[in-house]
Amino acid sequence: MIHRILTPLVLLLSATCARADLPFNTQEIASFDQPWALAFLPDGRMLVTEKPGSLYVVTEEGQKQAVGGVPDVDFGGQGGLGDVLVHPEFDSNSRIYLSYAEAGVGGTRGAAVAHAELDLEGRRPQLRNVQVIWRQYPKMLGRGHYGHRLLIDTDGYLWITSGDRQKFTPAQDMQSNVGKILRLNDDGSVPEDNPFMGYFDTDPNVDDGGVYNQIWALGSRNSLGIDQAADGRIWQIEMGPLHGDELNLVTRSANYGYPTVSNGDHYDGREMPDHDTRPEFDEPALWWSTSIAPGDLMIYKGQRFTEWQGNAFAAGLGSKAIIRIELLDDGSARELERYDMGQRIRSLTEGPDGAVWVLEDERRDQGGRLLKLTPR
């Protein structure tokens, strides 16, 4: 009996790390199969997605319960179940959002976003009234660069990052919502004050279902993080080609220039013109010539890490690090610190009490853990 009582305590202590070179303690809470995103419910529990297609309700102690009714996902490559977002008025509408890769005709694929009501009352959590409210247009061959990170801002607008699907030119094509930053109402409809609303209405040759109306900014490659700062500004982070990862301030009708310009190069070694050669495009606030491979972006607003307030944090996949960034008033930014985590970092989320929750990526037999970071 004594052994059974002591074992959980021993496991808890062994899962808590206080490395001298890190300003936080790291506690292992649970592990997952290719986790991708995390969001907090109002009661303090979390929703965690796994790329193969599972969604879980997770307690702060690591107890997991699978959610039923999740849409079918087209799992493979970079595709699968992606982001999860809890509506700010969840207590009254029970609404959550999911992004995922969706199969199309002839082997094509594209990202989709659905909202649903999360029923937590039964024996098993269940999604009800699932409705797809957005799709990448057009669907394409390939299994990379979906983007599909989600944000609801303080004005209630839904933001979607839409990756370029590794097809380059659609990022500059106004008849496609691929390679763009999109702004919608929370029901998926288009706000009437979007910058390109009705832009092509007088052109009889344009017939694209009005996807240009959704566009807020264009010229992105694979934007895998978006968040809003306390001052209301919205920032996004994206993977460049060979190096050239970017942090960008999201502004109305901005064009970040991809694939015409990038501070990185093509993977086959061909050079790309740098941003400073084409001043008509918006330059990044910060860029990395040695790739950090960003997987997510979090702007810290809590009280627990007082020295971090207002800083942005990038989840580093290839760099296996958490990168702390200062956001400056003039729209630029600078890297402050880099915390070596020893694993690919997929997602970062601020918890209700100001702790930082981390999802490791899972590749082969490494990672996949949910970690809680608290001050030392």
Rank of each mutant, 00 (worst) to 15 (best):
V73G: 05
Q309L: 07
V10S: 04
P23W: 03
R135F: 01
S291Y: 05
A314N: 11
P52D: 05
S14A: 14
P279I: 01
M46R: 05
G310S: 04
E102Y: 03
A285S: 14
R278A: 01
A229P: 08
E117G: 13
P259D: 15
W308E: 06
W36C: 04
S189P: 15
D207R: 13
A37L: 04
I152M: 14
I325E: 11
M341Y: 01
R324Q: 09
W216V: 07
L127V: 13
A254T: 01
V358D: 04
D186S: 15
I234V: 11
T374V: 13
P71R: 08
D83R: 04
T277A: 14
A217T: 09
K167F: 06
L158K: 12
D361W: 00
Q65L: 02
A103S: 14
T16I: 12
N213H: 07
Q366T: 15
G351K: 06
G82R: 10
H275G: 03
E102Q: 12
Q172P: 10
G144K: 12
A30E: 02
W159K: 08
R123I: 10
R165G: 09
I215C: 05
S94Q: 08
F24I: 10
V84T: 13
R128T: 11
E238V: 05
R334D: 03
T161P: 07
Q131V: 15
T161R: 11
T154A: 15
D340T: 03
G295R: 06
P88K: 05
S220W: 12
V178D: 09
L22M: 14
L286F: 02
V261D: 10
D276K: 00
Q343I: 13
G147Q: 10
V57M: 01
T251V: 12
G142A: 11
V84E: 15
D201H: 07
K51H: 00
L359H: 11
D231A: 12
V84P: 02
A217R: 06
A333Y: 05
V70L: 02
L348S: 11
G142M: 03
H243I: 08
H148Q: 15
G69V: 10
D33A: 02
G232S: 14
L12N: 12
V105G: 05
S291V: 07
A37F: 01
L151T: 10
S319D: 14
G316Y: 10
E271L: 13
R19E: 09
R252F: 09
G316Q: 13
W308M: 01
L297F: 05
G163S: 08
D330W: 06
K139E: 05
R183W: 02
W216Y: 13
D296F: 04
K301V: 15
E238F: 10
I29T: 00
L55D: 06
A116T: 09
A321Q: 04
S94L: 12
A321I: 01
S319M: 09
Y258W: 15
S253A: 15
V211F: 06
L348R: 02
G79I: 03
A37K: 03
L13P: 00
G310H: 01
H145L: 12
G110Q: 09
L336A: 08
S289Q: 13
P8D: 00
V70R: 04
E192S: 13
L47T: 00
D33F: 06
